[in-house]
Design a protein around this nucleic acid. Sequence first.
RNA 1: GCGGAUGUGGCGGAAUUGGCAGACGCGCUAGACUUAGGAUCUAGUAUCUUACGAUGUGGGGGUUCAAGUCCCUUCAUCCGCACCA
Length: 803
Amino acid sequence: MSTYDHKQIEKDWQKYWEENETFRIEENSKKEKFYGLVEFPYPSGVGLHVGHVRAYTSLEVIARKRRLEGFNVLFPIGWDAFGLPTENYAIKTGRHPREVTDENIAVFTDQLKRIGYSFDWSKEIDTTDPKYFKWTQWIFLQLFKHGLAFRDRTYVNFCNGCKVVLANEDFRDGKCDRCGSEVVQLEKDVWFLKIREYAEKLLAGLDDVDYLPRIRLEQENWIGKSIGAEVDFAIAGHDNALRVFTTRPDTLFGATFMVIAPEHPLIAELAADITNMAELVDYQEKAKRKTEFERVQLAKDKTGVRILGIQAINPVTHTEIPIFIADYVMMGYGTGAIMAVPGHDTRDWEFATKFGLPIIEVIKGGDVSEAAYTDTDSGEMVNSGFLNGMEVKQAIAAAISYLEKENLGKQTINYKMKDWAFNRQRYWGEPIPIIHCPKCGMVPVPENELPLELPKVESYEPTDNGKSPLANIPEWYQTTCPVCGGPAERETDTMPQWAGSSWYFLRYFDNQNDDEFASMDKMKYWLPVDWYNGGMEHVTRHLLYSRFWHQFLYDIGLVPTKEPYAKRTAQGLILGNDGDKMSKSKGNVVNPNEIIDNYGADTLRTYIMFIGDYEKAAPWSDNGAKGCRRFLDRVWKLQDIVTDGEGYSNGLETAIHKTIKKVSSDYEEMKYNTAIAAMMTLLNEFNKQSKITQDDLKTFILLLYPVAPHITSQIWKEMKMGGRLDQTTWPQYDEAKTVDNVVEMAVQINGKVRGTITLPVDADKDTARAIALSQETILSYTQGKTIVKEIYVPGKIFNIVVK
RNA sequence: GCGGAUGUGGCGGAAUUGGCAGACGCGCUAGACUUAGGAUCUAGUAUCUUACGAUGUGGGGGUUCAAGUCCCUUCAUCCGCACCA
């Protein structure tokens, strides 16, 4: 027998698959399809991470299995290649991002091929390819034309290091996610997409798909729906009303003051009546200088300023109450104003205590002089006029119907999710295809002029004022208006990185199409994605953004399914061997290439699938990887013990049928670790037998093939098992043959195991008792005692209760 | 603060509807083969105990013939959201 030379074997088979186009999809196939999608990588300079390997190998296993099950399988890969790291690197080294990107893609491609993934490379896509982003821009224009893209002047988060405006999601703790620099507030005109209009659809759509529960939950939290009421508080002596959002209209009688966000427009509206304007402006200035992080995280001590000169009127008690500005109220949520109920809200209670404001108990149960009483999901209303004596739920309904009857308010739904800040002030992104005309306003670039490409320039460094580098290139941004023909300027912002990934799954199966982003016929065949796997870090933003685009495209009749992904799963992190998150600074990064060189791609794949519970984080272990190499060595050596004989060996038949069943279902449930454990167990059985038939080995090889395709293909070839392994069919099991005829069963006395008996699986209780009591040790426990009860579960347990 | 999850050997982790806890792998121990072993093979490996046996799935309590699994309570860790009105 030849030796297991992983380098040669893997090289040979990768070449064979490439030359034979083994994994190319069938066009116009009558076969049932399977679309397995993995999150396409950002091709960074550092190369592939073992985390990618975990994410990709799982669906790789499913894809290879599906092909053997007769499906037409689409398992594609591409590049999410716009983005800051490439641009930053390009600036640093004075090279063009295009060049850097191509280089990185080449590195990633080589690595993915060396792992032996069964991607259909003819369907590769690249978000930075003009032929691709033509359609990203085109979809943006459809959003614009349907009123879902708009510009608004707001305060944005500007990173001093990257010189770029960040979405709320792109920084944490006041520091930029990418460079760690401080993030400050800057006023700017930016693009938004109205994802909030799709909040309800995005929630409802979750009922039609199969996402892991924790994924669904994170999406629901992110959308953050809450049902409450909007209530108008009149301003004494004015026609103006101050509108608040509250989830607890039942506590209206306890509202003793109001708080509005520092940016609230009411201040400007009533400036004439306000007597302490200077003080308010001072507070506004201070608030503006705080980042959102400081307002939220650091401002534990409530600050605020009372607005002098105006008073609100509580619509149910008709008493005049003061109005404050305070930065614990956010302009971005609800109406930017609240009615403060200090008796039952901790923040309001702190504020009221600090400013000496009245605190009224309206729900029985606590002591509001000591602390806010917030255990108020139920309880009895007090001090609340017509609500007195009611239960909370009843009171909420009663309050709302009162407000609606009196025209003071109405039931309202609010969402935490904000509109999607859709812009970057950088070079390496899709240009937003809009032209600003002094006469016609914002005009879309005509669709036949797409793609709107980036100018080829020397300098693409960011400006200091928060404008895109494109704003430094007059020959690019100076243009004529497509409507009036007059001089006009192009939008110089580019799209955020989330853009290209919001629709990429629609492009794979029709990646050469220049007339439409994808043909309807092909979409009708391939959509939806049957199974989408990726990281937990993308289950809110990316998943919601792409579902939003897809639902929009569905609404305008351009895609055939409401939801893009039928099923979504997520893998756990792979940690360094010290149990910490892998990072360069900790020096605990595992390079997949090293494993491939030393042990082979099959070992890498097997170990990463074996490492632990797929959904949980697991620390890398070099010894664990070595153990998997040992396993494959032992698999290779099975060739030595194959002897003549048809079918399965007598002593192995049940074990083989059991293993087929277990491996088949474990793969589907992403329990790769136990599937591999089951194959290891079967291997041990084989070796105990010291000889096996060709059919024993054949089934084993097929089960292992999706995980370790190179070694299994080679064994298949060397053992002359017939035809091509990649064209054979997945092994079947016979349910009847998965159960042992004779079982070993524990015998318990009073619930404690005192011995085991061997008996036919379908033996009755009397038989079991006879065999059990024929054993001395068991008899010694029953002698002199009375058997009061016998529990016999065939095939499981025999428990004798004695007194 | 709110929401979710997870606690099992020295380590990663297994355990249908409650039915022999610790599968499988790592590590470790002993032996075999070897010039050698950081290769390979064989055997062993939860804890306490000389043994019989007892104990054991974060802690405490409960249901049951039987609990890692069900119920109550408590602690710890991780993740998500977070002055969200």
